[in-house]
Each structure stands twice: as structure tokens, then as C-alpha cells.
């Protein structure tokens, strides 16, 4: 059991790490944030100064190293846009996210389980088929489509 737990935790850590690398690389290539942050009226020298101040002139591995080192100490960095600790901004939004997730979970469990049992008991009734049909529709419709319909 403990071996299993350790292994699962290790795997999760690996997944988090891989995600961090992926997102880091992704964000790095998507565009230089300074190009949208800085005022269009800024001169080349002022843009360069901003890049340097934000540490974006350093090589990617170095930026990543700094990020990981700070993250291990509980510092997730400072938001470029808000100039405040990133953790604080995440925590600000957390209640709303949790609220959405919990309500959605409660609703889907509350509605989903009875419907599933019903469909399972009478798989060939009209109700059963409708429920299974709706399930196959709901689980495969594109995310964006589901959200707007």
C-alpha cells in the first residue's frame, strides 16, 4: 500500500514537472510578453530595459531553473501584469473556481447517478435509450459547443 502510494505520488510529481516544462516552453514560444505589455510608444532602448528587468533576456533553461528554485521555496513568482505575487492572484480566483467545480460536481452526481441506474435497469425502454443517447452526445460534443448549447 505504501509502495503504491509512493509510486502514485511520484508519478503525479513527474506529471506536474512535465506540465511545468511544457507550459514554460509553450509560453516562451507563443510570444514575448513584453511586445504586448509595453506601451507602443516605447523606444527600442526602453523595451530592452523592460525585457531585462523582467528577466526575459536570460536563456530559457535559466528562467526555468529560477522558477523551479523559487517555486520549491513557495514563491511562484510575480505576475507581469499585476505586479503582485502569482500565488496571491491564483488564490484570489480560487473560491470562484471551487464554487463552480463543487456545484457542477454535486449536480452531475445528483442527476447522473439516478439516471444511470434507471438506464441500467431498463436499457431497452425509451427512457433508457434517451439517457444513453444523451450521454453519448454529451461526452463527445466539442467542449466549446457544449458550453454554448
Amino acid at each position: 500500500m505504501i509502495v503504491y502510494l509512493v509510486r502514485r505520488v511520484g508519478q503525479s510529481l513527474l506529471a506536474v514537472m512535465a506540465m511545468a516544462v511544457l507550459v514554460f516552453i509553450g509560453v516562451f514560444f507563443i510570444g514575448n510578453p513584453v511586445d504586448v505589455l509595453v506601451s507602443p510608444e516605447a523606444s527600442q532602448a526602453q523595451i530592452a530595459a523592460t525585457v531585462e528587468r523582467l528577466g526575459l533576456d536570460r536563456p530559457l533553461y535559466e528562467q526555468f531553473g529560477i522558477f523551479v528554485w523559487n517555486a520549491l521555496q513557495g514563491d511562484l513568482g510575480t505576475s507581469f501584469v499585476y505586479g503582485r505575487p502569482a500565488l496571491e492572484i491564483i488564490l484570489d480566483r480560487l473560491p470562484a473556481t471551487l464554487e463552480l467545480a463543487l456545484v457542477a460536481l454535486a449536480l452531475s452526481v445528483g442527476i447522473g447517478i439516478p439516471l444511470g441506474v434507471w438506464a441500467g435497469l431498463r436499457p431497452d425502454s425509451i427512457a433508457g435509450r434517451t439517457i444513453m443517447g444523451a450521454r453519448s452526445w454529451g461526452s463527445r460534443c466539442p467542449i466549446s459547443g457544449r458550453a454554448c448549447c
Binding site: 510578453p33 505589455l37 506601451s39 516605447a42 526602453q46 523592460t50 528587468r53 523582467l54 507581469f80 505586479g83
Partner: peptide
């Protein structure tokens, strides 16, 4: 002003 993403120094410089 620290960490400014787009500083006002372009006016005070």
C-alpha cells in the same frame, strides 16, 4: 516603480 510592465519613464526620461 518596481516590476512595471510598461513604465512611465518614457515621459519622465
Amino acid at each position: 516603480v518596481e516590476n512595471s510592465p510598461s513604465a512611465y519613464t518614457i515621459f519622465t526620461g
